[in-house]
Amino acid sequence: MQTIQYREAIREAMQEEMRLDDRVFLMGEEVAQYNGAYKISQGMLDEFGPRRVVDSPISETGFSGLGVGAAMYGLRPIIEFMSWSFCLVAADQIINNAPKMLYMSGGQFGCPAVFRGNNGAGGQLGSTHSWCVESMFASVPGLKLAIPSTPRDAKGLLKTAIRDDDPVFNLESERMLGLGARGDKDFSRYIKDTWAPPTNKQDEDFTIPFGVADIKKPGKDVTIVAAGRPVHFALDAAEELEKEGIDCEVIDPRTYRPLDIDTIVKSVRKTNYCVVVDQSWPFASVGSEIAAQVYEHAMDDLDNKVIRVNNDDIPAPYNRTLEQEMLPNTRKIVEAVRAVTYNA
C-alpha cells in the first residue's frame, strides 16, 4: 500500500479514469496551468493536455452548466469547484438541471457528471467560504453524494463517481487534503493498510461502491456515526473515551446518498447507544435524518435517546478559537458519548 495524501488520492483517481476513458475531462478554476489551487490536479495538464484539463474562468453557473450539457451529450465531465461554497451561484445548474434531467426527459438524457471540491470550514475563511453543503443537497433525488474521509476512500469513491452514470457530488475537505502527508502529526494513522489506497499496479480495478458504510473503528459500547472530516474528530474522541473504558464503534457511511442505514442500524442493535455527528447546521441536517432513521428502524434497541453533534447553529466566525469551537469537535463528541451512555 502507498502512503499518499488525500489530495494525491483524488488526483490518482482522476488520472486513472482519464487514462481509461477519453470521454472524461476535468474542468474548473485553476485546474490546468496553475496546477490546481490546492495542487490536486498537479501535473495533469502535462499528461492530458488542454483539451482534457481545462481552466475555466470564475464562472460557476457557466462551467457547471457546461458540464451538465456535455454529460447529456455523452461526455463524462469532472467539474471542480475550488470550494463547494462557490457552487451556490450555480444552484440552478447543479440541483435543477443535473439531477432532474433523467426524470424530466423520461429516461432519455442522464447526467454522468462529477462535481467535486472542498466542503466545510477551511482555516478562518469566514462564513461565506465555510459551507457544508451535504444537508442542503442530500435531500435532492437524482443525485448521489459521497464524502470521503481517508485517502483510500477518496480514491475509491471518486473512481466510482466518475464511472457512475448519474450526477455525483464529491465533498472533499481543504483540512484533509494533507492527510497522510509526511510530517502530518497523525501520520501513523494513515499508513495503516486499511487507510491507504492501492496503486493502480497493485489493484487496477480498485473502486469503493456507493452505499456501503465503513467501520472505521470497531467497538461494542456506543455507535458514533460520522462522515467526512468529522470522522477524525470521532476517532480522536474514541481514543479519549477508551481511557474511560468506553469502547466506541465509529461508522463512516462514506456516501449520504445512497445511505447505508443497514450497517448503522446493525451497529446500534449491538451497542444500544448512538451519537450522530455531522458538520452541517443542526436543523434539518443529514445527522437529523440519520437519527430519525435510527429511531424508525431500531427504536426498541436503543437504551437512550440519540444525540446529534453538529456544527453550532451560527454563521462560521473568523476568529480562530470560535471557529474551532463551532465545529462538531472532539470535545463535543466526547461529551455527547458520556451523556448518552450514562445509564449503561
Partner: peptide
Amino acid sequence: GQCPLGVGLAFATQY
C-alpha cells in the same frame, strides 16, 4: 438556465 447547457453541447461536439 439552458444557455450553459447549450454551451456544454457545443463543447462536447468540439471535444
